[in-house]
């Protein structure tokens, strides 16, 4: 909208709120490596289902484990799954998207058809396939989630790369005999970076949700690993006695996802004003 073409990053409410929530998530994980009020897996039956108090900020669960310690430690698995799954999606997605964009023709068609197709298999379904063959666990969960992100990132990469390759400076580089790899690194990647950063942030949030669902079902993190999803599953067993146990982990998931989504929206507004008009 700015008439003079002046570009000024818009630091919006979304960006601020999102950044703060995301930082809190990172901080929780960082702190958990150094300090937790109690060892997160320490069972203390005499003090089971304790109400929140100074000794146990969020109370204890049905085995007497400290909820606050578990919440802190549980953030690690969320971040791990998010990082690795998004990493898988980025690496394979960018490569696939660039191959599609540079080669064009039937290869491009094939890659894009394949991407459309993967949408029919949500992360949970592929995780069910994988775990039923190879057994449950974090690694299978990560693979199942990451695989789903490959086509999403590939689509974004291809669309942006096609746009960049059609522009004069890329044409000039091609005419000058530069190879596709050097064009990709010099011209394409810097241009798709904003779109990919936004996508990665939002997919990170999606990965946290998917990991929570898988762990809740027992297909993700296995005991004694603390995980918000599994905490919810365990809290469900004592729902009538201690409903509040089901509140904290869910709120932790929701706040993390909300933060990352807001951060993604805020980054999109700040980095890529073109995209804003459409949202």
């Amino acid at each position: 909208m700015s008439a003079g073409g002046l570009w000024r990053p818009r630091v919006s409410f979304s960006l601020w709120a999102g950044a703060i929530l995301a930082l809190m998530l990172l901080l929780a994980a960082a702190v958990s490596f150094v300090w937790t009020p109690y060892p997160p897996a320490a069972i203390d039956i005499p003090h089971k289902l304790a109400s929140p108090s100074l000794a146990h900020l969020f109370g204890t669960d049905d085995l007497g484990r400290d909820v606050a310690s578990q919440l802190l430690t549980g953030s690690r698995i969320s971040i791990l799954v998010g990082l690795v799954a998004v990493g898988i999606g980025l690496v394979f997605g960018i490569v696939l998207g660039l191959i599609a964009s540079f080669s064009g023709g039937w290869i491009e068609d094939a890659v894009m058809r394949l991407s459309d197709f993967v949408f029919a298999f949500p992360a949970l379904l592929s995780a069910i396939m994988l775990t039923s063959t190879y057994g449950p666990g974090v690694i299978n969960a990560i693979i199942a989630i990451g695989v789903l992100y490959v086509p999403i990132i590939a689509k974004v990469t291809r669309a942006t790369a096609n746009g960049v390759l059609a522009r004069e400076y890329a044409l000039a580089a091609r005419a000058a005999g530069r190879g596709p790899l050097s064009i990709a690194f010099d011209h394409v990647l810097p241009n798709i970076a904003p779109a990919l950063i936004v996508q990665a942030t939002i997919q990170f949030a999606g990965a946290i949700l998917a990991e929570a669902a898988l762990s809740y079902l027992g297909l993700g993190a296995q005991p004694p690993q603390a995980s918000w999803g599994r905490m919810l599953a365990e809290a469900q067993n004592v729902l009538y006695n201690a409903p509040s146990l089901a509140i904290y982990p869910g709120a932790a998931i929701a706040l993390s996802v909300l933060g990352l989504n807001l951060l993604g929206d805020g980054l999109r507004d700040a980095l890529d004003p073109k995209l804003k008009a459409r949202s």
Binding site: A213, A246, I247, G250, I253, A254, V257, L258
Partner: peptide
Amino acid sequence: GLAVPNFWLAIL
């Protein structure tokens, strides 16, 4: 709504 896991909403 985007941030709330459906199974948590179910539990709530």
